[in-house]
Design a protein around this nucleic acid. Structure first.
Lengths: 220, 220
DNA sequence: GCAATAGTGTCTATTAGACAATATGGG
DNA sequence: CCCATATTGTCTAATAGACACTATTGC
């Protein structure tokens, strides 16, 4: 491959899209079909198009929408990586985001004809990631954990209606440790993000649980 | 001025450089001499040069070094702003950093022949800032406060040797509130960032204070 | 009644804030 | 001694973690 040095830096975005599969935290990887590093695994992303994108966030959402036929409820900036060597095409700048996909929408993310996808454990991706995406994934996971550790509720991982236990399980999957039920529910009482859904319960052969939804003004 | 749309985004950096002047938190503004918005006030920054810069951090340091004849001890990424309208020259991406300048090095930052400088209160800059730099400054201040609120010690604001009271004053200047002496010093005891300097005391007509320095492995 | 999960209560160790008390210099 | 600041100690309210207890369903 001929390496051509561009006069202007390449500007692109990458997204670590997290979800829950069987109560386990997973992140989306795609197997690249195109030019740099074809066949290699990477975080979904690509070069922005100034003609149609109104911002980096806009570009990241556009690329994911093309892949997933969905509109993500939020996008969180993690960091911007840069340098002459991180992309073989030349001097590049890449802004990394993470986002949360509701677990009931995982099927909406399907592989295209040219690109395979995989939902992997963010701590052990299994595939070797191209570019500096291994480091990026670690940073995105750290940013997500930090936010949840600080008390943010990852409600975007859950369906529209959920139980408090499901919120706890989501936090546990993110943090990688068990959380005490009593302490967790105590904190939730002073959180304004949750709204009781009046009727609505039931799930199995045990005491039914109260259902909740995210409050109107909730932002992750 | 003719507005030309570029095929590639403009990539630049901006830095909110904080320091202490008379125990007050101040941030550096420059009065632009060149093309977009000449005479306007803004955070120091500029377009990167892929030929010489090895990263965005490198570019930000280079631009500040030219202005200030100094090498900053650290640089912290805040966020990356983007869009077609935030810079009149066209679609642009700008990564914002903040940094801390030791109070005894303020004189090293001098105005050039073409650009005036000002050290202003970050909460009330006084000058109206061009581009989206008003918003940027607010974000940088928030990032700095958040970090200090979480327990990070802004030792880079201080001279090489300092007293615990000086550390407290620096934190108070950043946070904009008074901190309890007892509680503050209790936290410092469990911080590994500080090292006693054996001799060294004295300042005025009162009990001398123990001097400290940042530990070898200290990173803000 | 039993299994399983929901939901609440209690005890304790730790911590942050308020504030008092003591220490040490110069004058 | 007095002043000003350094340094340490004490008391208390709030909080987090551990863990136990009660509640409600299906079977």
């Amino acid at each position: 491959m001929t390496e051509k040095k561009l006069l202007f830096p390449i500007v692109n975005t990458d997204v670590a899209l997290f979800t829950l599969i069987d109560q386990q935290l997973r992140v989306l990887l795609i197997q690249r079909a195109n030019k740099p590093d074809p066949g290699g695994w990477a975080l979904p992303g690509g070069i922005i198009k100034p003609e149609i994108d109104k911002s980096l966030e806009d570009a990241a959402l556009r690329m994911l929408a093309a892949k997933a036929l969905l509109r993500l409820p939020h996008l969180q900036q993690v960091a911007t990586h840069s340098g002459p060597d991180r992309d073989p095409r030349g001097w590049s700048v890449s802004t990394l985001f993470f986002s949360l996909l509701p677990s009931d929408q995982v099927p909406a993310v399907a592989a295209s004809k040219t690109e395979a996808i995989a939902w992997v454990d963010p701590e052990r991706p299994g595939h070797r990631l191209g570019f500096d995406h291994g480091q990026m994934l670690a940073e995105a996971l750290h940013a997500l954990r930090d936010k949840v550790e600080r008390g943010a509720l990852p409600l975007h991982l859950l369906p529209a209606r959920f139980t408090l236990t499901e919120v706890q399980r989501a936090c546990e999957a993110i943090l990688g440790r068990v959380i005490d039920k009593g302490a967790f529910r105590r904190q939730l009482k002073s959180a304004r993000d949750l709204v009781k859904v009046p009727g609505a319960f039931v799930r199995g052969a045990q005491r039914p649980a109260q259902m909740y939804r995210a409050s109107a003004g909730f932002v992750f």
